[in-house]
């Protein structure tokens, strides 16, 4: 039982309790932790020591690629591959090229934001051990959960369990692998 568990999951009623518990868990030196809540709680990032995501830089990169490819595409079409005079404008008529480049910038940046978020989050992930706890279905409804994984170097079944119980948790569950 103690060998094939994924970790320990504590249930809380309010976000305040969750954040307070997460801070104590962090201060106790646990690293492989996670919290689950039915809505985003900003304070939890700090309490769990979650580092700021690199997603914004990826999105910036996506936008730059979109902009560059938009300009490059139109240059290729209208200057290099098939130059044709329209309305007496130069082959490289930048003002006319702005709208498509602008839209491509936004398109690629938005793709990066969405798919970057999904991939960095490791989704789609239909199975996760926490789903084995029946009460965990309430994490998307009204309850707050805190997880300490067995992989954590400080993890010791008995000790961690009693520590989690001391955090004002409603209940502590074993998460089976």
């Amino acid at each position: 039982m103690k060998e094939n568990i994924y970790g320990l999951l504590a249930e809380f009623d309010t976000p305040t309790q969750l954040v307070a518990a997460a801070e104590k868990v962090r201060d106790a030196g646990y690293k492989r932790t996670d919290a689950f809540s039915p809505f985003p709680i900003h304070e939890i990032d700090e309490a769990l020591g979650i580092k700021r995501s690199i997603l914004p830089f990826m999105v910036l990169g996506g936008g730059i690629v979109g902009l560059a490819s938009g300009i490059a595409l139109q240059w290729f079409v209208h200057v290099y591959d098939y130059p044709i005079i329209v309305g007496g404008r130069p082959y490289f008529s930048l003002p006319s090229f702005i709208p498509p480049s602008y839209e491509l910038t936004i398109l690629l940046a938005a793709f990066t934001a969405v798919f970057g978020m999904i991939l960095l989050n490791g989704l789609p992930q239909p199975y996760h051990p926490v789903f084995n706890v029946p009460r965990f279905a309430l994490a998307t409804r009204e309850k707050f959960f805190l997880l300490i994984e067995r992989r954590d170097p400080k993890f010791d079944y008995g000790e961690t369990r009693s520590f989690m119980q001391s955090l004002n948790a409603q209940e502590v569950f074993d998460v089976e692998e």
Partner: peptide, 10 residues
Amino acid sequence: MGWRGSARHW
């Protein structure tokens, strides 16, 4: 897609 409300995900 297996969303579980993880703080890192949020």
